[in-house]
Each structure stands twice: as C-alpha cells, then as structure tokens.
Design a protein around this nucleic acid. Sequence first.
RNA 1: GGGUCGGUGCCCGAGUGGCCAAAGGGAGCAGACUGUAAAUCUGCCGGCACUGCCUACGUAGGUUCAAAUCCUGCCCGGCCCA
Length: 424
Amino acid sequence: MTQKGLFDDLAARGLIHDSTDAATLSARLDAEPIGIYVGFDPTADSLHVGHLLGQLTLRRFQLAGHRPFPLAGGATGMVGDPSGKSEERNLLDRDTLQHNVEKIKNQLSRLLDFSAGATSATLVNNADWTAQITALDFLRDVGKYITVNQMMAKESVKNRLTSENGLSYTEFSYMLLQANDFRHLCATHNVELQMGGSDQWGNITAGIDLIRKSMSRSAFGATWPLVTRSDGQKFGKTAGGAVWLDAQRTSPYQFRQFWMQMPDDDAVRYVPQFSLQSLDELKSVIDEHNGAPERRIVQRLLATEITTMVHGADAARDAEAAADILFGADPTQASFEALNVVAAEVPTTVVGHDQFDDVFGLLASAGVVTSTSDARRTIAQKGIKVNGVVLEEGQTLAAHGVLHDKWVLVRKGKTTYHLFEIAR
RNA sequence: GGGUCGGUGCCCGAGUGGCCAAAGGGAGCAGACUGUAAAUCUGCCGGCACUGCCUACGUAGGUUCAAAUCCUGCCCGGCCCA
C-alpha cells in the first residue's frame, strides 16, 4: 500500500535533520499510510521558495501513499512564532491575515493532489478550531499539560530571554498553539506525524508531548535542515528580494532564472532535496553535470521541474523559451512570435517614438537602472546593450533599430533584460 | 534623575574648523576572464539640467569668510551612579 523505504530515502536526500526514533518511524511509514502535517504561517500574501521544502515533503509523502495535511496558520499567524527571530514580531491585523490565508491556500494546493482517493490532501486552517476556544479552556486543556520549564528549555526562548529584546507572553505561548494543532489533527484526522524546518523542532515535540499526556497515544515528528547557501547568504533571497511563488510577485521567468543561475555547489546539493526524481536517476544526472558543469545540467533540471510544479507546464515552457532567446542567439534574428514570448516574461515598458532620445530618463523610469546618474555610469562602462549591441554614449535607444517595428531589447550587464515596446 | 560616552553614506567604520560627497572594509553595479557558475583582476558606487550645481554626517538653532568637525537646546542609544 505504501512505498517502502520512504524515511531512508528522505534521509539520503538530506531532508532529515531531527526525528523521533528513526527506526520506529521508518517502520511505521512502511507498514501503513499515515497522516502528516506541515504548517505554513501567513506572514505574507504569498509563500516563497523557502516554503517549498515543506510542500515538497508533503508531496513526497503523498506519492508514497500517505495522507498530507497542509496547514494554513490562520490562528498561529495571529501570535507570531519566536523561533528564528531575534526580536518580537509585529503582529498583522486580522484583515491582512485573512487575506494572506486566502492567497496562500491556493498556493498550498498547487503541488498536491486533492482528489487522489485515500491519499487525497486536506487543506486545514488552524483558525477553524482555535478561534473559538476560550482562554480558560485553553489554559485547562493545553496549558495544563505543558510545563513552563519545558518551554524555557527551548533554544529560541532561551536566546530571547538573554537578549535585550525580550519575549512577550504572546510569543512565548506560540508553542502551545502549535502543540494544540497537532493534537487536534491527531484527534480528528488521525494525523500522526508533523514535520517542519529545523527551527520547529521544539514546537513539534511539544505537540507530541501534549498528545501523549492528554490522549495517551504516541505521535512522530521530524524536521528538515535549514537550506543554506554556499556563500552564507539566506536561501531564496536575491538582489530583488525574496523569490515568491506568486506569479504576480515573481514572474515564472524570474522564478526559473533563480534556479538556472544557481552556483554549482548549491545546485548539486539542492537537487536531491528539491527534485522528486529518484535518487538513482539524480545520481547519474549529477555525474553528468560534474563532467561538464558549464552545461548547467543540474540547474536546468531544477529550473524545469520546480517551475513546472509551481507555475505549470505551459508557463515553464514559455519561461524556458524566453530564456533561450535571451541567452542564446542574436536577438535581431528572433522571430516575432519568439519575441512575443519574451515580452510576456520580461518586464516591458511601453514608450512613444519621440521618447527614445531621453535614454537616461527611459532607463531610470523603467527601473533598469536606479537613477539617471546610474544610467550614465552604466552606459559609460559599456554595461547596456541594445538589441545585442553595446550602447555607446550619446546614442539613442533606437540606435540599433527596432525589432519587428515594435520592440527594443535592452540588456544591462549579463542577466537583466528589459523590453521597450513602441506605443501604437 | 545625576554622570559619562556615543549617534557619519545600504551596513560596519575613520574623520575633531577649510585640502570632505567624506579614508578603509563589506554589500551592490559594470567591465575583463568564463559557463546565464565560483574565484580573481579593473572601474564605479548621493542626486541632477554632470568640467557645474543641489542635498547630505541624529535634530533645531548659533559662532565663523568657512562646520561632519566649535557652542546651545532637544531626541535617541550604551555604560556607571541613584
């Protein structure tokens, strides 16, 4: 019924950081389908690549025959998780939170199958069972079972207690809410396993304890490691900010580029963690990649697979087609249709014929450069190419022609593209 | 509340009357080399109507031909005392 060896597979991919007794959990997973949940707090109206591991983990379990429960933290988002934070969070207001939950729900659905019979995913929102609980009930039914001593032992709590920022009672209580979520899902949906990032370990074990003490049954927990980058930067951040799953915030093209432009070391490390392909298949791909790293085989695999999962096959194909044109041959040879694809993926600004003389102003207002001064500098340093040709000082944007009577393709540096479209 | 030290560009940090749009480092941008990597090297790195002008060294005033630099008030932070 369930695929054997799931736990070992996860471990081999580098996806297990902590877990409750590995042998027991592994045997349990092999024996029969179980319910697993992963929580996502609605701190923004879109998830970002940092959340992908959680979604992919649920997907892996689903593919192996288990029942995934993505959880939107409508309630926990009200409080703020102190884990991994050095100071008290600013709380979002209810309307914003509600809005975020709605947007995120949709994204949580993307990678999972909700009509897969026994292994169907179930989207839950902890506000549904938490919002109505009275303070008294909560203290009796949850607080009673968890000691302050235990909460104080949490690393994130300790850190905050010794820092100057302090820790409010609200954030301190966060772990109780999360523990209650686990118990609720265990009681109502027979969910036995919670997973999360390594910073969630304390919250997860609190839930396991609560289940043992109040329900007299056992539950499992596991975490995946923090995704790190070889250069020490935070994963999922680029110069432009976070890489979002929302196509409005990060276009499929940009999303795909995030994976394409990944350093070799990171890409090789991430592939087993992010790809759903078997380890055997991946091993041969990695070998091939190491033999010819300039072909970016691993980056390409990640870019294609993840973009397809998040944005769909059509969007992934278009993004790839656009990138092939931009990073491939001479743009002046590109067909009208090809450029149309590019136009859909690359930021585009509509301009009038008469505006082409104001090169600095155009580049600045389109956001290609940060100011007209920056535009001057970049051009002086030969950093701007128009239709593939270096733009010299004093030339207008139309100096190298207009493609198909419609577009001027501007490239800044190696990877930034912008399209100027002539107003009709 | 008293004392004391400090608040400088995206970040760290030097500068204690003119030579200061402000050393140095980091980040960032561009160029070379490359593979839409990494490392390395070079240049840039407040804005604009760009051989000049404007705005900037917590904030508001003052002294001076001239202030990030001196004086006064205020705000904020560290430390010590109460």
